[in-house]
Amino acid sequence: MNVLVCFKVVPDLDQLSGSDWVVDGCSRVETRFIKKMINPYDESALELALKLANPAKVSGITTNLSALTIADSGANLTLKNLRALGYQQAVRIESDAELDFAPQEIAILIAAYIRNANDFDLIIIGQQSGVGDNAKTPLLTAELMQWPCITQVTAIENDPAGNVKVTSLADEGTVTRVIKPPCVLAVGNAPFSTLRVPTLKAIKEQAAVPIKTIRSTEIRKAAPNLPDSPDAELLKLEVVHRKRKSMIINGANAPEKAKILYHSYLKGWLADL
């Protein structure tokens, strides 16, 4: 089975301090200077795919893993690490466009890549990622490919006969589906999905293998019949101001602070319930 996981390296926005949140009209917040991380939902997607591939080796089913990102060369480090973890292909699409708020463009590039490769069974993507918070990429990818899609995925397992067992959250509870690929899986809050860490030995073995890089224009040319679909345009960004001003309770120790908290605040509030 051939699995493609799409991921994005994003700025760790919690690293920005209050004064860094400066916006002016629709100009972007400066995030260049803060640490990057793999978008947490994508990190889960990458790990779920590794979990799917590894026992498969034991059971005789070969799972071929590919990782794809649309990014500048800053993402190469992550791609190399993914190769060291067992991703056979690690591919980067280079685009000059501003993509934070352009999920349809991202989905078009992903779909173009899938069509070109023409041998993927499963596409696994985190359901949403920071900065844009668009929550559309996996859905639009499924539509462009005319494949089914399962959202809020929490676990993926092999099932006999080339099928895949997918667990996901739905409004009515936990749904388990045994499916016949192809399918797009949008990963939600998946427990136990922190990405494993590659060993130096594995990284070294992969060091010489170059990361495959494709220009976005090339890939679009290669799959010309995909639609252009400008969708929503960002007009303005504003900082969200939170209004509460906290009263800090002072006391000699925890029990004393608890007493003050209870008698001065909580007791009255509880009485109003």
């Binding site: 926005l13 919690d14 920005l16 949140w21 916006v23 917040v29 708020f101 920071g130 900065v131 844009g132 918070d133 960002l234 007009l235 303005k236 960004l237 504003e238 900082v239 969200v240």
Partner: peptide, 9 residues
């Protein structure tokens, strides 16, 4: 947007 730090129009 921006993980809820900002609001976008």
């Amino acid at each position: 947007v921006y993980n809820g730090y900002l609001q976008g129009t």
